[in-house]
């Protein structure tokens, strides 16, 4: 099996509410896959299931050829599956450097954290300036950088980025997008969710559109589908009233 991540017929929800309805997905080695679609349709839940923060009701997930059922999030991290969550407030009372070091040690790379931090500082020069600052005092953009930097410290083979540019001003967003391009170059495989469709299509090889907990459209991120077609796909999905 050459795929790094395989998700098959996954269903999941919270209590009575079904969020994922038999979704399937795969990510190859050295491949970046984008997930598009409106908020509240299951993208984040899918990623939470992949990193075993949320238990799926049925279906299978395999990472690097091994079923992940019953595996702890920590074990997945040490196998190289790193999830950078959406809008994390990080660890307000830890400094940037402490947070980065923590990510290295908790993923089993404590002995090489200095090399890791040099790499992170070369991708995010701003974090180097802020290294002694508490993460709780960072701006929104800097906080995202720290969050991505922590992801890199864990030496991912699959890096999952959930809405890295959420809530940022256009200028900061632009700056962060450039960082994400540099992050992409450092990591073998990536799953990217972002509200900025152009960013996702620019950075990924393939995309999936997720609506009502299932994939409704897939393709190469080469612009063969027009932006208008994409948008109508989104709206068509919301117009039929299902949640």
């Amino acid at each position: 099996m050459s795929d790094l991540l395989t998700v098959e017929n996954l269903t999941a929800g919270y209590g009575q509410a079904k969020v994922l309805r038999g979704i399937s997905l795969r990510v190859g080695q050295h491949e970046a896959v984008g997930l598009l679609g409106p908020n509240g349709h299951g993208k984040t839940t899918l990623l939470r299931c992949v990193s075993n923060l949320h238990r799926a009701a049925s279906g299978t997930i395999a990472f690097a050829g091994r079923d992940t059922r019953g595996e702890s999030p920590g074990s997945l991290v040490r196998r190289g599956l790193i999830h950078v969550p959406q809008g994390s407030r990080l660890f307000p009372q830890l400094t940037v450097e402490e947070a980065l070091r923590l990510s290295a040690s908790s993923s089993g790379h404590s002995s090489t954290w200095r090399d890791g931090i040099d790499q992170v500082f070369s991708v995010f020069p701003k974090l180097k300036e802020r290294r002694r600052q508490l993460t709780g005092t960072l701006s929104g953009g800097e906080r995202q950088m720290a969050s991505l930097g922590m992801g890199l410290m864990a030496r991912p083979t699959l890096l999952i980025l959930d809405e890295p540019t959420l809530g940022l001003s256009p200028k900061v967003k632009h700056e962060l997008s450039e960082c994400i391009v540099r992050v992409r170059a450092e990591v073998s495989s990536v799953i990217l969710i972002d509200g900025d469709m152009d960013l996702v299509l620019d950075l990924t090889d393939r995309y999936h559109v997720v609506l009502h907990g299932d994939v409704v459209d897939s393709g190469a991120s080469d612009g063969s589908r027009s932006r208008d077609e994409m948008m109508s796909l989104f709206l068509g999905g919301t117009a039929d009233g299902r949640h």
Binding site: S51, L53, P73, G74, V77, R78, I82, H83, V84, P85, S88, R89, L90, F91, P92, Q93, L94, E98, A99, R101, L102, S103, S105, S106, S107, G108, M150, A154
Partner: peptide, 17 residues
């Protein structure tokens, strides 16, 4: 450091392993 991290953000701490 691990104790403080868990104290401050449990879910993200788990995502760090």
């Amino acid at each position: 450091l691990t104790v403080r991290a868990l104290e401050q953000n449990r879910e993200h701490a788990q995502l760090l392993g």
